[in-house]
Design a protein around this nucleic acid. Structure first.
Lengths: 250, 250
DNA sequence: CTAGTGCACTGGTCGGACCAGTAGGCTACG
DNA sequence: CGTAGCCTACTGGTCCGACCAGTGCACTAG
């Protein structure tokens, strides 16, 4: 015979149902960033669950970076605009729990940033090119002023490149991975003996990259970016793992 | 003058402190995957907080994919081995909320997979090369058998490549982005009129890629991968956005 | 008209309670 | 003696009621 086919049922908890519904409303556009959710006491009426359940659901949504709640706020939780914070968090966890090495992270940056510059060389606007130039000018000024702001200006440059690539995913991922890398080496980066030499070399590299972007030579710009990044970060990577980084250089 | 410098204090909630402590124990290695947390009632004693607070903390940790709890389990919550599930979730949310286009996702795949094959061509072992060959062989068999398993075999190939790249982050990100892309076009991919032709072309491309990897010609393998991916996915991307994809082709 | 004060809400936390489910020990039966 | 079955002591999931410290707004007193 073979009666009706039954599927194994997964026990789905009440708070998950609440999460699903609110999540769907946000991702579907019913709830827009800036809008407010009803208060917890109102939600427990609408969902017919207790406040504990509502709160657990809100905690999950908050962990995913979709909403934020503030004590004392007469309105309910606020729907947040997208931010890569959740992505950043999970990738940071990944880096620690999955034991990502600095070499892997730097290698990933080399891949992403060189691809971004390759795209930027073809798709950039004149404003974006000018923005990259400004960032490098500020990098040079920062070195003269002692180098404290050098890192921030460097970030501004790479961010401008990532935006010029026209790919939001590349932009977000470069941003996330960059901050993780900088966080890992932040303690060593300050007291590098050859810090100023590294900065000046980095500026020269950046200028060459901009020149390549101006002429539209994407592959050259990409190659220069990989080389620049290798020169800048290889010193922090254990020698044994540098070979994998060099595999990305011609 | 100028009394002591005070810093603005951020109201930190009790459950966040609980999350921090448990998270630190897990990421620091004090708690290993498979181990159990104390029961909620035990945790509320250790942390001197109420069970509600403990539960909200556990919900956050669960949302981050660090622990899992099962009702009725005499032991406490289980510490999970790392899985990219949380990364996958946040990137899927990103794709929806930040309105990532299919073109951006495919472009990202082109970047990641071509970089993976570039690294694999230089760093692969013979076993990994053989694994890629097996996957392509199975792809061909799948086409003859009707094509239902083609997608799975294709995934196996790209996964083998990603592993051969030696970079766990690349491996994880290719996996996550690939599943998002496949999810987006899953409804269209089945009833493609020229499905079989696409599959056969894809197999030819894969064979060329393997040949390039065998001879160690990474740049060629990378170029072939980008072209193959473009040919395979361009049909699903709106014509106006295909130019950005072509920017990655020589 | 403005400055100040309540008040009515909010979210954060607590304690206690009940339920369904699980695992492992215990008992009673074969 | 071995095992099948029950029983109990836990677990997490959910609910309820309560209190507190904040916040914004309306209202009032100057």
């Amino acid at each position: 015979m073979g009666g009706p086919r039954f599927e194994p049922v997964r026990a789905v908890r009440a708070y998950e149902r609440v999460v699903e519904q609110i999540e769907e409303a946000i991702e579907g556009g019913t709830l827009c960033p800036g809008q407010r959710l009803p208060s917890e006491r109102e939600l427990m009426v609408q969902f017919s669950v207790s406040r504990s359940t509502v709160r657990e659901a809100l905690r999950v949504l908050q962990a995913r970076g979709l909403v934020r709640s503030r004590p004392g706020d007469p309105n309910g939780a606020e729907v947040l605009p997208f931010s890569p914070a959740a992505l950043h968090k999970s990738m940071t966890t990944l880096a620690r729990v999955a034991e990502l090495s600095l070499a892997e992270l730097v290698q990933f940056r080399m891949v992403l940033d060189s691809s971004a510059i390759l795209l930027a060389a073809r798709l950039r606007t004149d404003e974006q090119l000018a923005e990259m130039g400004v960032a490098v000018t500020r990098m040079r000024a920062a070195v003269e002023a002692g180098g404290d702001d050098f890192g921030a200006c460097d970030v501004a440059f790479h961010d401008a490149v990532a935006r010029a690539s026209g790919n939001k995913l590349i932009q977000i991922c470069t941003d996330v991975v960059r901050s993780i890398v900088l966080d890992l080496i932040s303690e060593k980066i300050a007291d590098a003996a050859d810090g100023e030499a590294l900065m000046r070399q980095s500026i020269r590299h950046h200028e060459e990259v901009i020149a390549a972007v101006r002429t539209g030579d994407g592959p050259l710009a990409a190659r220069l970016t990989r080389q620049s990044m290798y020169d800048y970060y290889a010193g922090y990577v254990p020698p044994a793992e540098r070979a994998a980084l060099r595999a990305l250089l011609e």
